[in-house]
Design a protein around this nucleic acid. Structure first.
Lengths: 257, 257
DNA sequence: CGTTTGTTTGACGTCCTTCAAAAGCAGTGG
DNA sequence: CCACTGCTTTTGAAGGACGTCAAACAAACG
C-alpha cells in the first residue's frame, strides 16, 4: 500500500508528511556525501523563508544578482535559458528536494532564469548562511560542490540526448531519469509518478515544438512503451523504455564519499 | 606585434613561454575567485605528472574510476558522452588552462569520457592532493566549486543553443565562446585564434553531421561572417557574429568573490 | 457559463540526414 | 621522387524527421 502523492500534487499533500523543511535536501546530500552529525545539524538548522509560487511565475530572471538559494519543497521548477526572440529552453527540471540554484552561491549573477512549472512551494535560504557554513565546514563545501557536479552531469546527459537522439528516445530518457529521481527523493515509484508539466514546457525541455511533442507522446502511448496522461507518467515496461533511451543511471549516482 | 601561437599549435610552441605548469590554471581560478597568497602558493605547488596524448587518444573512459584530474597544458581535449551505437556527443571542449575534469574530484566514477582532439600535453594531478587542499583551505574548495559551476554554465548555454538554434547560429555561438575563452586564457585574440579541430568533431559537438557541418561552414565563409580554415578561426566582424549567435559573454564571467 | 489554457489534428514546407563517391593532403616507404 | 595509404574535406542527389501555420476540440477556472 503506497501513500505516494496523487497525480498533480507532488508534495502538496494536506498532511504534514511533506513538511516544508530541508529534510529532503539533507537526504539528497547524504545520499552522495558522508556528513558528520554536527554537519547534519548545521544543514537542517539553516534558516529559510517560505515562498509559494504560482504556475509559470518567475522566481529568478537573467541578469539578476541573487542573494538566496531556491529550494523546492513542493511542485516543479524549471531552469531556463532565454533567447532574444522570447523562446525559452529548459535546461533543468527540479523536483521536491532539489536546491535549484545551489550554484548561485558561487555564481550569484544569474545567466539563467528560474520559473515554477506548476504551483510550487519554495524555501529561500540566504547565500550568506550557505557560504558561512561552507567556509566553516569544508566537508560541507565539498558536499555542495558534489551536488553542483551531479547537477552538471545531468545537463551533460541531456546535451548528449538532444544532440544525437530522436524525439522518442529523448522522451524515453527524460521519463527514465525523472522516474529514478522521483524514487530517490522518495516521492513515487520510478514506474509511475506524478509529472504535472504541460506539453509546451516539455517542448522547451526537449528542443522540439509543442505539436511534435504531442504527436511523439501519442505514438509512444500507442506502442505502449510509456504513457504520459493526466499529468502522470506510467511506465508499464521499464526495461523496454530504458532500452529505447539507452538509459544508464550511473550519472545520477555517487557512492557516499 | 603579437607572438600568439601559430595555427595548429595551441601551446605547443618551442619556447618555454607555454611552460608545462599550472600557472594558467591559477590565472583561471583567480579570475573568478579571490585567493590568499598562501592559497595561491598551495595551488601552484601542487604535484603533477606530465602526460602527452596523441590525437584522438582516450584519456578517461566511461565507467572508469579516476584518481587524478586532467589539466590541459597544450592542445585541445574533448569531454564526450558515448552512445551504444558508437556515436559520440562532445559535451565540452577544453583549451590550455582548463582542468577538464575538476568535477571528478567529487565524482570519481566517470560517466563521461575524455579524448584528446589534437596532439596534447596534459598534466595529471592526484585527487588526493586536490581533496586535501580543499579540506584544509575551504576558500579553495569554494573556488573549485565555482570553477565547476562555470563549467556547468557553459554546458547549459550549449544546451540552449542546440535546442533552439539552427546550424549557423550554433557555430556562431561556439566560435564566439571559444574566442572569448582563448582571449581570457591569454592564448590568442578573440577575433582570430588557432582551433585545430576536425569537422567530424565539430559535428559531434554541435549535434550535426559532418556533411552538414561542412556545408554550413562554407556558407558562413561565403557571407564573410566567420572563416574556419587551416585549423584557424577568423572573425572579421565580431559584432555581426555575436548578433547572429545572440552571444552574451556574461555566463563565462564571474566577478572575483 | 464564458474565458482561458492546454491538447489534438491536418496540410505543407524545410532543415538536416543519409548514402555514395570524388578530390585534396599528410605521412610512409620504396 | 613517386606510389601508396589513410584521413579529412567537399560535392551531389534523394529522403525523412521535425517545424510552421491554422483551426478544432477539451479541460480548467473564476
Amino acid at each position: 500500500m503506497s501513500n505516494y502523492p496523487t497525480p498533480a500534487t507532488l508534495g502538496h499533500s494536506k498532511a504534514a508528511d511533506h513538511a516544508a523543511d530541508l529534510s529532503r535536501f539533507l537526504k539528497r546530500l547524504t545520499r552522495h556525501s558522508r556528513l558528520a552529525p554536527e554537519e547534519i545539524d548545521a544543514v537542517t538548522s539553516l534558516k529559510f523563508r517560505t515562498a509559494p509560487v504560482g504556475p509559470h511565475r518567475d522566481i529568478v530572471s537573467p541578469g539578476q544578482t541573487v542573494n538566496e538559494a531556491c529550494y523546492v519543497a513542493a511542485g516543479l521548477v524549471g531552469r531556463f535559458d532565454q533567447m532574444l526572440d522570447g523562446s525559452r529552453q529548459i535546461t533543468a527540471i527540479h523536483i521536491p528536494g532539489d536546491m535549484c540554484d545551489l550554484h548561485s552561491v558561487v555564481l550569484p549573477t544569474a545567466s539563467w532564469s528560474l520559473t515554477a512549472l506548476t504551483r510550487s512551494i519554495t524555501l529561500r535560504i540566504p547565500h550568506e548562511d550557505l557560504r558561512a557554513l561552507a567556509l566553516e565546514r569544508p566537508n560541507v563545501a565539498i558536499a555542495f560542490w558534489r551536488d553542483t557536479a551531479l547537477d552538471a552531469a545531468v545537463i551533460g546527459k541531456w546535451y548528449g540526448n538532444l544532440g544525437s537522439k530522436n524525439a522518442q528516445a529523448r522522451f524515453a530518457h527524460l521519463f527514465c531519469e525523472m522516474g529514478m529521481r522521483m524514487e530517490f527523493a522518495g516521492l513515487a515509484e520510478r514506474t509511475g509518478y506524478p509529472f504535472p508539466i504541460v506539453q509546451s514546457d516539455l517542448a522547451d525541455a526537449t528542443g522540439l515544438t509543442a505539436v511534435h511533442v504531442n504527436r511523439t507522446l501519442q505514438a509512444m502511448r500507442e506502442t505502449g512503451v510509456v504513457e504520459f496522461r493526466d499529468r502522470r507518467v506510467t511506465i508499464p515496461d521499464w526495461a523496454a523504455l530504458a532500452k529505447l533511451a539507452e538509459f544508464d543511471d550511473s550519472y545520477l549516482l555517487s557512492v557516499p564519499h
